[in-house]
Design a protein around this nucleic acid. Structure first.
Lengths: 132, 132
DNA sequence: TGATATAATGATAATGATAACTATTTTCGG
DNA sequence: CCGAAAATAGTTATCATTATCATTATATCA
């Protein structure tokens, strides 16, 4: 039997913080934010819970080429856009294409259960700032 | 003026190793392999050159959710499949969809220059091994 | 071909993100 | 309110990757 989850103040604060914002922060950003209400929360607790919540399907982990991982409070699959300058990740309101998963399933040896799309480029803010 | 590149034995060996294989190894796999011909090559040199070659457009860096980065000797854009069990990354022979980039460009604030798709699931080998 | 400027290396130390450890504290069902 | 089990804080450890720097290799050019 799997251990029964106990929802601690810290876990709920982390989940709420992530749910209440529409960007996709890294663990240390969450840490800084949650510390405003729970000053002595440990960074380890933040990582532990982000991992737990992701495994639990409450949030998403977003893979990154450089630096640290980003987290998404919206567990429903959707696509992302990453700025190559500042590293920020945002949502892309593009309809899901489940048929892609299906098509890939016919092409690879194994079982394909899903896919993710990461768009890249320069975000509006950075395009403004570094408009060379 | 940018510094003029000097093609060392080490850099060429790393590039060749990556070009000669069709999987997508991590830096330490490359290191182990190149060490067979250049035994005293430094791990730092491997990382330095993988970064250099990626920036130069000779190879690709493949983002990963967990663990370490993977590298691809084929710099032409294409899609990938990652096994959630063993972590291996392989190519997916799906036609490119440049129109996705275009569509995303109309939806985000900023400039979208490209996209990548990562399929996930269980590779043939792991499906065989862990067929619970 | 040999001198020279400079890019690249090897070895190692440093960094940064994340995971593991452990004694103590919280949580929650009875 | 009790007690077992889960979670925490604080800390140390681990792992991938970068930076540093004295030395070596590369390419250009006289």
């Amino acid at each position: 039997m799997q251990p029964k989850t106990k929802y601690s103040r810290q876990r709920l604060a982390i989940l709420n913080e992530l749910k209440s914002r529409c960007d996709h922060p890294t663990a240390d950003v969450i840490y800084a934010e949650v510390r405003k209400t729970i000053p002595n929360i440990s960074l380890g607790t933040v990582y532990r819970n982000l991992g737990f919540l992701a495994q639990n399907g409450d949030i998403l982990k977003i893979p990154a080429t450089a630096g640290s991982e980003h987290f998404d409070g919206n567990p429903a699959p959707h696509y992302h856009f990453k700025c190559n300058i500042c590293g920020n990740v945002s949502d892309v309101a593009l309809d899901l294409m489940p048929n892609l998963t299906e098509m890939a399933g016919n092409l690879v040896d194994g079982v394909v259960t899903g896919h993710s799309i990461m768009f890249e480029g320069k975000c509006g803010l950075c395009a403004e700032t570094y408009k060379k």
